[in-house]
Computed example of a mutant assay.
Amino acid sequence: MAIRVLVVDDSSFFRRRVSEILEQDPLLTVVDTATNGQEAVEKARLLRPDVITMDIEMPVMDGISAVRAIMKATPTPVLMFSSLTHDGARATLDALDAGAMDFLPKRFEDIARSKEEAILLLQQRVKTIARRRAFMTPRATAPSPLRGRSTPVGSGSGVVGRLASTPVTSVAPEPVVDRRSLPRRSGKHYQLLAIGTSTGGPVALQNVLTKLPANFPHPIVLIQHMPGTFTTAFAARLDGLCQIGVKEAQDGDQLRPGHAYLAPGGKQMLFEGRPGAARLRILEGNDKVNYKPCVDITFASAAKIYGGKVLAVVLTGMGADGREGARLLKDQGASIWAQDEESCVVYGMPQAVAKAGIATESLSLPLIGEAIINEMGG
């Protein structure tokens, strides 16, 4: 049975372009289009599509408000289209907080080297997130309290202040973690926490990192597949929400306990030095590598510097990035965890690690933050 898609955009040209691309795949069918967010909410209720593609800026009702209303009434996987600008990044992150599953740039040439590659990517993304429809439940609409520092870094009128004050829609209420269900503490001594993720990662990382205390005893590196214009805004958002410090990594950053370093989009993040005095190297991405940043590259570099004193966690994401880097870490004695299928937006990267027999634990997302504290201290 074909996957039924509702295409939402105020541009008739873009609606037609997206519809034509999707209709080229025999497994996809466009059941209707909508010109604004209010129309999208009404047609989602009437047509019950399997996936909705959604613009952000539209008249009558914007895309973020529409996503929030759809998730409350008729939860449906939503793929957002965004501009690759700082404001576009902030709006896209708001849409993901509201319940959207994934995003793509509106300029397809920004994500693909050819027209054919862009077409396949859009079709693949729609088919992938469609699989999550059966797992979706209505979301709460009340904003969640911020769990981070009482005074966000920067003024209220600055980027961080604006991001930190953005209401965050959460699945409510998140169950209280029964510590008896956490993995038994291994007794290993750690020096680094490394987390790799892709599709669904922004929300998953927020879920995990907001649970870590300010006195978390180890540095943290984050590798999220994301464009370069997005990682600055995403790091700032996390910094405002979390008790730990979060920043976009810069070349030469010295790793400090209780701080997380997000790999810049379009580049690769490696380590140099020795444990306890390691620094980050940020290098230009090689076009021969599919992912920039690449989880495999950062994990492999961590294996060289930290050996087995790493806890590596692979969260939701498409593809298999992280599997080979995790294998190198495990060969050194590191601990490897994967997010479980039920709590993933896309069970690709974690599945690759689990199927290869590399992961020692497969954990539900709500458990992972507490499990990290239990294993690593803090």
Rank of each mutant, 00 (worst) to 15 (best):
127 K>P: 04
122 L>W: 01
124 Q>N: 08
144 S>C: 14
146 L>G: 15
119 I>F: 10
136 M>E: 08
129 I>N: 02
141 T>V: 13
115 K>N: 11
140 A>V: 12
135 F>H: 01
143 P>M: 04
146 L>Q: 13
142 A>K: 08
127 K>M: 12
135 F>T: 13
128 T>A: 12
148 G>M: 04
137 T>H: 04
117 E>S: 06
130 A>Y: 01
136 M>N: 09
130 A>Q: 02
141 T>S: 15
127 K>R: 15
126 V>D: 02
120 L>M: 13
121 L>P: 07
137 T>I: 11
133 R>H: 10
146 L>E: 08
148 G>I: 04
119 I>G: 02
116 E>T: 14
132 R>C: 07
148 G>A: 11
146 L>N: 15
146 L>H: 10
130 A>W: 01
127 K>T: 05
127 K>F: 03
127 K>A: 07
117 E>G: 04
139 R>V: 15
141 T>K: 08
132 R>G: 00
137 T>P: 00
120 L>I: 07
141 T>Q: 15
129 I>V: 14
148 G>N: 08
115 K>M: 13
144 S>W: 11
118 A>N: 11
134 A>I: 10
126 V>K: 04
123 Q>S: 13
130 A>T: 02
134 A>N: 06
134 A>G: 14
115 K>C: 04
132 R>E: 06
134 A>W: 00
126 V>I: 07
140 A>H: 09
127 K>Y: 03
145 P>C: 09
118 A>P: 08
123 Q>I: 12
141 T>L: 08
129 I>G: 01
135 F>I: 00
124 Q>I: 00
138 P>V: 07
137 T>Y: 00
117 E>M: 10
146 L>D: 07
125 R>E: 04
121 L>A: 12
129 I>C: 05
129 I>H: 04
143 P>A: 00
119 I>S: 05
132 R>L: 10
138 P>Y: 03
138 P>R: 03
125 R>T: 01
116 E>P: 00
119 I>K: 14
144 S>G: 08
142 A>N: 12
